[in-house]
Design a protein around this nucleic acid. Structure first.
Lengths: 194, 194
DNA sequence: AAAATGAAGTGATGTAGATCACTTCCGGTA
DNA sequence: TACCGGAAGTGATCTACATCACTTCATTTT
């Protein structure tokens, strides 16, 4: 449970309202009660391969990367997360099984965490929260479809330009070689685009 | 609404039970009442670019492909569907906007259709159905994540082998050039693998 | 039954992007 | 202030895969 750092945590209220409908502070408080706050330094992990993944994370502050390491030791970035984004190993989290990826802070981070148990409890207690997660998954699904289409139909340059359009703020804080990995391109090729 | 072709429609009952929990025929009937049956011949479309997408489809019989046509007229296959799979243009369906893709029968098809309105009604009337679609979206999300990872880390041959492992039955009924398109490979290259 | 159409295989050639090797340019730290 | 490791740029070369052109075979159409 979270102590009263109201200012810090209001963004979550707004985030949930935007995907559902307005609520009072009294309604928000029990929701918040199902989350914890954690702090991690740059280079620390919130998930490592083979971990039991008990939590989903919501970024209050900072930036993270989720990546898979292939047989030859190469890193493939699945997802970034910055303020107000959600991140975890969803496969492992939703099936309560072992992580197949790493999630690492690329800046000092403050995160809200929620367990699957608490998430399901919240969904049952509050119709709003069931709707919230349903919407989140729905839009997450559509975003992944777009990324697949982009991988199928666009070349390296087009994918990079799309990334710039979609996530201009990440360009400022994420090393280019990680963006290359996210796009499925070598860092040398990315550097030569334009 | 559907007339009583109970035999034909029982697979849907089983499909829903598998993702939730058992039900009686009496419970199933009102669910079925929210669907319609349509029949389409090979080469017919169930969705065309710029259509309003009013329905989601569940395949009773037959096989379909969902594809995007790029600027140079090239087809990129997003998804196949065969018996007991769901298909539509989810972006357009969920946002009730215009299709950006085509969905075409590659065999004669019998499909169950449900509108977004009926789907939402069902979710409100029956807790089970809300759970059902939540689970479906969740697993759909995980499947898309796997496909992205496969596009990022595997070469053409590895992706083809993975496809064979995951969907052996599609190999029998779908032309190889469509599988090539689904995998993001030219049909010549696919033909030369192995 | 003949003709048209489309799926699939295959050779020759072109090219986007990977890989390797080296250099430069920082930002942290000792 | 010098040192070190990581980020990034760039040349040379390699390669996986695309593209084009042609052939064969099977299915559909007339």
């Amino acid at each position: 449970m979270v102590s009263n750092q109201a200012q810090l945590l209001l963004p979550l209220k707004k985030h949930i309202e935007e995907a559902t409908f307005p609520m009072t502070n009294e309604e928000f408080e029990p929701i918040l009660g199902h989350f914890d706050v954690i702090r991690r330094k740059k280079h620390q992990f919130v998930v490592q391969e083979h971990d039991q993944v008990r939590n989903e994370f919501w970024v209050l502050k900072g930036c993270l990367k989720a990546y898979f390491v292939d047989g030859s030791g190469k890193e493939h970035i699945i997802q970034f997360a910055q303020e107000e984004w959600w991140i975890t190993d969803y496969e492992a989290f939703l099936k309560q099984s072992q992580a197949s990826i790493f999630i690492e802070c690329i800046e000092d981070c403050e995160l809200l965490t929620i367990s699957l148990e608490n998430r399901e409890k919240l969904c049952q207690e509050q119709h709003r929260m069931a709707l919230f997660w349903a919407n989140k998954t729905k839009f997450g699904f559509l975003a992944l479809q777009k990324r697949i289409l982009s991988l199928l139909k666009n070349n390296a340059k087009e994918r990079y330009e799309e990334f710039l359009r979609l996530y201009p703020s990440l360009l400022q804080r994420v090393p280019k070689k990680m963006i290359a990995s996210f796009l499925g391109v070598s860092r040398e090729t990315l550097s030569r685009l334009e």
